[in-house]
Design a protein around this nucleic acid. Structure first.
Lengths: 343, 343
DNA sequence: ACGAACAACCAAAGCGCTTTGAATATTGTT
DNA sequence: AACAATATTCAAAGCGCTTTGGTTGTTCGT
């Protein structure tokens, strides 16, 4: 069933039928009723392709999910982010177009996306310092919002949504220092990522303010898997001078750290303190009670998805509106994994 | 840059330019060269919408990811499944269209998808017994492949890719029984899911063959989160007659079970055995060495994504081809979490 | 009762591509 | 040299929708 057929059945022109369905004012209430009823009866829905060809609007946003070199799969936090974004898309009748691409394919994918004209805007995931994708999209004139922030000398005149990673990791580190910890391990994300650099900066700031020198052997950067947490914690706990606390960039690595601690029959909290960053992943909740399992810096990645999507749709609908950005604070929440330094 | 402009620049008709780029034979090699060069130079890529309007083919497949009532977010295994599928899509130049929808919205979403004409085919996720989506899509005439199988009286004449859940869970249960375990807890997925019913059937079969009666108090069905594993294991371990082994439908719940065991200062393997189903999630690997952390039934969900995608594209390209299906065997791999029953 | 203002509708053009059917150029055959 | 056969090219139609610019009735003020 298409517009032509429907209008033939009704004996009304395609113009009027189209206008009736799209809520234009120059249609009498009577015909609008008739048309709506017929559309429902004959199960008519306008063909998306034809519509977007005619209007130039796709009602679609693209996500290009970076595959890490090591895992070749997107980080599971994307599931939650995208769930958040898709809520908003659904509310605005937008569609979601997803591509998974390795880091070196990214630019090419974005360029293709723009040229093929299949999306009205995109979300940039996992920005790196001076991320070339940002300038590329600005050149291409494709609306976009960055989840995270790039780090660059130039003024950052693009829209982004980010967590205050520096502040939150400084707070987490300070919390441990206040508890008497002096050897605090940092299991950070990949060094090339903007968020990891900011977290590192927070970690450093807290140390500096407390006049503690950082042991570089306690700081690592990797893809944040469970195995990463286990392997590194295991290694570090066998140091002659092991850390008394761990900060992990993700609950997933936190699981690995816990596994390593318990494999050595040490007790979390009493013997070793652990702080994680908690994205509030729905399948990997950090406890359901008031007191979380892990002490954490908490910021819902799903909510970040909401905000990014809302921002992008707004940019698409109002291309001339000024850039906006939002810095989300990640609360430090004391859970059952941190206690006074025992060593 | 569009076709019209490009053909004007070249002084060649749109027809010929289009044919040259699409590899039709009735174009001289000379002009083909010229056209290709110009397309490259002027950065021309055909507009997807226009093309699909003209051809009737979208080169797009849709995934409708069910949101669980409880979590409102897709299970993280989708990330891996979709990563697998998208490899294939990329290779065939297909796009991916994702919608997240709660269970009761599912049918509506599929219907809309078909009517709007924005996808050439879809993948059905998380089939339930007598899943209405299957008949719906058959009526709509939209090609589809089911990840998993429905369970129904009627003959199952549709394409699917599934793991042999019954067989693998029977093997897992038998393994534990052979080790002397008699009280084996089953932390299964939602009862309404086909795969959960098949896993339960395997669990029952093993018990039956060993003439052991099942204690229904040891069998639960829920969304497979970490917290689920923790909470239930914690409860069961405080029974006057606790289980000596656990089988979990997912590594995620397995983490929770481990947390509960270790919180009670029991040892995994020595005191309590644990078997999980391992989807080989890239961020939640079940160990990297020969011997996995958890004894498991292993079947890569990413590979399942590959196969589904390949199957679907084949169906789209050859609509008349017969239905195909594939049953993947999940190997039982003995890891460091199962040992002789100690009680 | 007449023209202005407005309400309601429509035919046709256009979005950017593919594809049909026809036209033109080239080659081969006798 | 003339014609058939083949190789290239093209103009125009069509995919299903929106939107421009007109046309036809209605209502209103005077």
């Amino acid at each position: 069933m298409n517009l032509k057929e429907l209008s033939n059945i009704l004996g009304i022109s395609q113009t009027t039928v189209s206008r009736a369905l799209n809520g234009y004012p120059e249609v009498s209430e009577a015909t609008r009723q008739k048309v709506s009823a017929a559309a429902l009866q004959y199960n008519y829905t306008p063909n998306t392709r034809a519509r977007s060809l005619a209007t130039g609007l796709n009602h679609t946003v693209g996500h290009v999910i970076p595959l890490s070199e090591t895992n070749e799969v997107g980080n599971p936090i994307f599931t939650d982010f995208i769930a958040g974004a898709s809520e908003i898309y659904a509310a605005h009748n937008f569609d979601m177009h997803i591509t998974m691409a390795s880091r070196d394919e990214q630019e090419d994918v974005y360029r293709k996306l723009a040229l093929k004209g299949s999306v009205d805007g995109v979300i940039i995931h996992g920005p790196k310092p001076n991320d070339p994708r940002i300038t590329l999209l600005q050149e291409l004139g494709l609306p976009f919002v960055v989840h995270g922030r790039s780090i660059s000398e130039k003024e950052e005149n693009y829209s982004w949504v980010d967590v205050n990673n520096k502040r939150s990791f400084e707070a987490a580190t300070k919390h441990l220092i206040d508890l008497g910890h002096r050897r605090i391990a940092l299991l950070n994300g990949l060094e090339s990522m903007g968020f990891a650099q900011r977290r590192r900066a927070g970690y450093e700031a807290a140390h500096q303010k407390a006049h503690i020198t950082i042991d570089e052997n306690l700081c690592t950067n990797e893809e944040m898997t469970e195995e990463y947490g286990f392997r590194i914690a295991n290694q570090m706990l066998s140091f002659k001078n092991p850390p008394s606390a761990f900060i992990a960039s993700s609950i997933i690595s936190g699981y690995g750290i816990r596994r390593a601690i318990e494999a050595r029959h040490l007790r979390i909290k009493e013997d070793i303190s652990v702080v994680i960053h908690d994205d509030e992943l729905s399948y990997l909740r950090n406890g359901y009670e008031d007191t979380p399992v892990f002490t954490c810096t908490r910021s819902s990645v799903r909510k970040a998805g909401n905000i990014c999507a809302e921002m992008l749709i707004n940019k698409i609908k109002h291309p001339q509106s000024p850039v906006t950005s939002q810095l989300l604070e990640a609360e430090l929440i004391i859970g059952n994994s941190t206690g006074p330094c025992s060593s």
